[in-house]
């Protein structure tokens, strides 16, 4: 298994505020990598940098052999990013939104169709896809956006708190969905402050706090290392 994404000594300052103070980790092909940390730890900042939205103050990001600074367009071609707080065009029907987004990635119409059909399966919105996005509930919109992020089978899906705003049942469904996708060769980098979710989903996790990675391991490895029964307790010990 090769390394899809490598982040080295990433630093980001917002004015005088140091949001990231040297973050490093690797995501391997076909794995789900979870970034966990409390509010304001720097999760979103890290993901936004990798998604080409923010420019890092310092450090290096390599994706499929491409350098972020030199080839951001290669990143955009093969990455899907689900922002933490996102919406879709309210005046568009769900199905039109999927079509609109698919066209940016597809080579031809057949592929557009393939992508949209996959998205329909993922989101499970059925007939409601014919309604305008403006009429969707928060959870429905979230599922639509998640489906659009996964439909192109990107080399790396970056999901910032994928289950935020979803109820228990929907969260479970979404988690199953994400897990199913890695079997098809998609790598996932996700963030969450829900330790249980990350424990269930991730092959490996990184603990992030105040802009620094505290530790990075498999969930089982971390639990063994800190002699804890779950990741919440691991996190508390690591922060101390």
């Amino acid at each position: 298994m090769g390394v899809v994404l490598e982040v080295q000594e990433l630093k980001k300052k917002y004015g005088s505020l140091e949001a990231l103070r040297g973050v490093s980790f690797k995501v391997e092909e076909g794995e789900i990598f979870g970034l966990i940390g409390p509010n304001g730890a720097g999760k979103t900042t890290t993901l936004r940098i990798i998604a080409t939205l923010l420019t890092p103050t310092d450090g290096r990001v390599t994706f499929m052999g491409y350098d972020l600074k030199k080839n951001p367009e290669k990143f955009r071609e093969h990455i899907s990013y689900l922002p933490e707080e996102a919406g879709a065009y309210r005046n568009m029907k769900g199905i039109d939104y999927l079509n609109f987004m698919a066209r940016f990635y597809a080579r031809d119409e057949a592929q557009v169709k393939e992508y949209v059909e996959r998205a329909e399966r993922i989101c499970g919105l059925g007939e409601r896809l014919k309604d305008k996005v403006g009429t969707y509930s928060k959870g429905m919109t979230r599922k639509l956006l998640l489906a659009r992020a996964l439909m192109t089978k990107p080399a790396l899906a970056i999901l910032d708190e994928p289950t935020s705003g979803l109820d228990v049942i929907n969260s479970l469904e979404v988690r199953e969905m994400i897990k199913g996708f890695t079997k098809e060769g998609v790598s996932v980098l996700l963030s969450s402050h829900n330790m249980l979710e990350v424990e269930f989903l991730s092959d490996r996790v990184a603990l992030i706090d105040r802009g620094q990675i505290l530790d990075s391991e498999t969930p089982q490895g971390l639990k063994d290392k800190y002699q804890a029964s779950n990741l919440e307790i691991v996190f508390r010990s690591a922060v101390r």
């Binding site: 936004r48 998604a51 080409t52 939205l53 367009e73 955009r76 071609e77 990455i79 899907s80 990013y81 922002p83 707080e85 996102a86 919406g87 879709a88 065009y89 309210r90 987004m101 940016f104 990635y105 956006l145």
Partner: peptide, 11 residues
Amino acid sequence: NKTLETLLTVP
């Protein structure tokens, strides 16, 4: 509508 971030990451 919070669509700008997504738009900025498409190819």
